[in-house]
Structures are given as structure tokens and as C-alpha cells.
Design a protein around this nucleic acid. Structure first.
Length: 402
DNA sequence: AACCAACAAATCTTTTCACG
DNA sequence: CGTGAAAAGATTTGTTGGTT
């Protein structure tokens, strides 16, 4: 909480501390009331430790405006109809896992990243290090000989732009075993990293992955019955930088436990109007649908809108024989789209321009990587630019949403 | 909850060594 | 010797995931 640490380290014990050396005497009397704690952590009533008064104030302000994801005290406290699932335990379920060698010895043949023999199918076992925001191909075990690697290399731009490129896992699991674990009607999953850290580049890491086996360190969010359009909206919220700022206040060490996720501030389905959906959803589709293996996701969304609407959204990438085409991986375009989403969510959360600028300063690794790549903190520039544009043009004002 | 170990990659520092 | 480049070594940073 004090010292050199650049990103916040919070832990949920029950104290509220600041770096006192940074405070003047009047600020030292600032504290959280019982009402504040009930607002920020209604299920567990524990109290985050903030790095600074400013972090606490911004967080409080957000919670005044936005409800927690799942409030266990309220009858309608789960507006998204969500449940969580840790599908396969990496140790306890390891008897179900098969390696490349084992499957090939059994006569299975590799098709993309699935092993097939007659009617038997083995699905890849996704691990958290294999994905990143809007990127289900972030890490692959292809050409990796050591299971112990904690870090996998990221694909080249050539591989990213190849719609057929897939990530290879270390283990595979029988499809029948997967279907008994996940009673699921979709051919894709919303997964997040359980292992993370507030000192990492980003803390809340969410992505859509093709229907697969998934390890316990990458829990998945299941929806009872929720439109795919709205799932896109929730996904956009989960990936946004303003949301990640709050995540960093509440993830104490290296785990994003369910109880933490449940108490994070996320907009409800009813907060999304036509205008906002038209802004958010096409960006989510473009950022997510970068390879054929996520075609089922694109098709599900397409089913909920007219094909005309699809072509109106994507004039440069229209349907071909009624089939949605993947979007070419373009780093610059992706950064622009993400920054626009971040800026809009900052508006929705009611974050002021100064506070947004401060929040962006709490992502030092994003800053450093940007500076190395572009010479400036481009993410900050693009977000601030779009934030101001929204302010000027009056679009996506919070009052039109809440 | 609160650590710790391991490892990769990056970066900084020191040593080595060929060459004139 | 002095020089500078390469090699080797040391330290720091970022990340995963294990342990108690």
C-alpha cells in the first residue's frame, strides 16, 4: 500500500489504509462508512484496502452509480442469470487428460486443434495463459516441449491474420466428458483468468473461446437464458479499462475468485438501449471474430439481428452466401476500437475527465509498452480523444443509459 | 490469505579477448 | 598496452501458478 508499488495492492481484510505520508491532516480523517462497505461488497461485507484516497473516492463514486454483478441479498440480484464453472481441475481431473503423443498412439488424427478418430472427438483443454482480451489464440503449445512453461509465446502477425490459425493446447479431453460438465447450448464460452495480479499489465482478463475443455484456472461464465447481443454488452463492460481499475482495487493477490467477480460494478441488461447496443456490439464482434473457430459466435449473434443489419454494421466485411466472415487482425484498428469502448464506458461509469486521466496513469505497463511501440502512451491519447468527442457531441451520456 | 518459486525476457554491468 | 566489441554474468521486471 505504501512505497514503490506502481499498481494497487489491495487485500480484503477489514482495514482501510492510505499512504499517510501523502495525505494532509484533513484527509487522514476520511473513512468508509458501513453504508459504503455495504455498497462496495454487499455479499461479504469485507473492506478493500485502497492505495490512495483518490482510488477510494473514484471507486465509491462508481459504486454509487452501478450495481454489483451478483447481489446475493436481493431477489433479482442476478440480472444476467449467470453462474460460474471451473470445468476441469488441473490436478484432480488429470486422469481425463490426454497428450498429443497419447492420442496419436491411439490412432487419433489432428484436425485444427481437435483430435478425431471415427466418432470420437477430443477437444483442446484451454488454460488461462492461452488467451487475452479479445484473443483466444494468445498462447499456443505448438513447438513447446515443456509443460512447465508459465509463459507461451504470442503468435506472429502472420498467424493472427490467418483465419485458420488455431492455438494448440498441451492436453485434450473427450468431448463427451466436456458436455457432461458444461450443460451449455452455445458453441462458444466466456472465460476469464483466475490467476492474475493487480501488478500485471491488466488484471481482469476476459475473452470468448470456442467450445472446449477448460482448466480450473480459467473459469467460465454460463448464462441461463440471455440474448447473445446482451452477452456482447456484458463482455464489453468486463474488458473495459475503467472496470479493470475497480478490479485492481479488489483483487488482493493472484486470484480473481468468484466472490470478487460477483461484487464488481457491472451494468445490467436494462441499462443498454438501442443506441448503445448499436455502438458496442459491432465493435465486440469485430474484435472477437478474428478466426473461423469462433464462427458459431458470429452466427449466434447474426441469428438475433437481420442480415441487413449485419451488412449495415459491416459494409466492408459483408455476409458471403449468408455466412459471416472473420475480421482481419489489424493492430491499429483494434486499439482504436478498444479505446472507443473504454472511453464510452468511462462516460457510462460517470468518471470525470481528470479521473479518467488519473485511472489511465495506474496502468504503468500499458503505458510503457505503448511508449516502446508508438513513442507515446497511445492508449491514453486515443481514449481521452474519444472521451472528449463524446462530451462535445453528447453521445452516450449516462443519463440516456441509466 | 499470504506468501514463494520458477522462469523468460529485458536490461544493466563486468569480464574477456582479438587486434593493432 | 589501449580499444572496442563480444561474451558472460548479474539484476530487474513480468508472469504463472504452487504451497501452507
Amino acid at each position: 500500500m505504501v512505497g514503490e508499488q506502481v499498481a494497487p495492492r489491495a487485500f480484503n481484510l477489514g482495514f482501510y489504509l492510505y499512504n499517510f505520508e501523502d495525505l494532509n491532516s484533513s484527509e487522514k480523517h476520511f473513512s468508509l462508512t458501513i453504508r459504503d462497505i455495504k455498497m462496495i461488497n454487499p455479499n461479504t461485507l469485507n473492506c478493500p484496502i485502497f492505495r490512495s484516497k483518490k482510488d477510494a473516492e473514484i471507486t465509491k463514486q462508481i459504486y454509487r452509480k452501478v450495481p454489483v454483478f451478483i447481489n446475493k441479498n436481493e431477489k433479482n440480484g442476478n440480472p444476467w442469470g449467470c453462474s460460474f464453472l471451473a470445468m476441469f481441475h488441473m490436478t484432480n481431473d488429470s486422469h481425463l487428460f490426454k497428450t498429443k503423443q497419447e492420442l496419436e498412439d491411439l490412432g487419433f488424427e489432428l484436425d485444427k486443434n481437435q483430435y478425431v478418430k471415427d466418432e470420437k472427438v477430443f477437444l483442446p483443454l484451454y488454460e488461462s495463459k492461452m488467451f487475452w482480451h479479445f484473443d483466444h489464440r494468445f498462447g499456443s503449445f505448438e513447438d513447446v516441449n515443456d509443460r512447465g512453461n508459465t509463459h507461451l509465446s504470442t503468435p506472429s502477425i502472420e498467424k493472427y491474420t490467418d483465419f485458420s490459425f488455431v492455438s494448440q493446447p498441451w492436453y485434450w479431453v473427450s468431448k463427451t466428458e466436456v458436455s457432461t460438465r458444461a450443460q451449455h447450448n452455445r458453441e462458444w464460452l466466456l472465460a476469464f483468468r483466475d490467476i492474475t495480479n493487480p501488478t500485471n499489465e491488466r488484471t481482469g482478463i476476459f475473452t470468448l473461446i470456442p467450445y472446449s475443455a477448460v482448466g480450473n484456472n480459467a473459469p467460465i461464465i454460463l448464462f441461463e437464458k440471455m440474448s447473445d447481443i446482451f452477452i456482447c454488452c456484458l463482455f464489453a463492460n468486463l474488458v473495459s479499462i475503467p472496470f479493470d481499475f475497480v478490479v485492481r482495487q479488489k483483487v488482493g493477490w493472484t486470484h480473481m475468485n468468484f466472490y470478487i467477480l460477483e461484487q464488481l460494478p457491472l451494468f445490467c441488461p436494462t441499462n443498454y438501449n438501442e443506441n448503445l447496443i448499436g455502438f458496442v456490439v459491432p465493435k465486440i464482434i469485430e474484435l472477437t471474430y478474428t478466426a473461423w473457430d469462433l464462427k458459431p459466435f458470429a452466427e449466434d449473434v447474426l441469428e438475433e439481428i437481420d442480415p441487413e443489419k449485419w451488412n449495415e454494421w459491416f459494409p466492408k466485411n459483408p455476409l458471403v452466401d449468408g455466412i459471416p466472415q472473420p475480421f482481419k487482425w489489424d493492430e491499429e484498428r483494434r486499439l482504436q476500437l478498444r479505446c472507443e469502448l473504454d472511453a464510452v464506458y468511462a462516460h457510462l461509469y460517470g468518471i470525470s475527465k481528470d479521473d479518467l486521466d488519473y485511472i489511465l496513469g495506474t496502468f504503468p505497463i500499458v503505458k510503457r509498452k505503448d511508449e516502446a511501440k508508438y513513442g507515446t502512451y497511445k492508449t491514453r491519447e486515443l481514449i481521452m480523444e474519444y472521451y472528449e468527442k463524446c462530451q462535445r457531441e453528447g453521445v452516450f451520456r449516462t443519463d440516456s443509459v441509466i
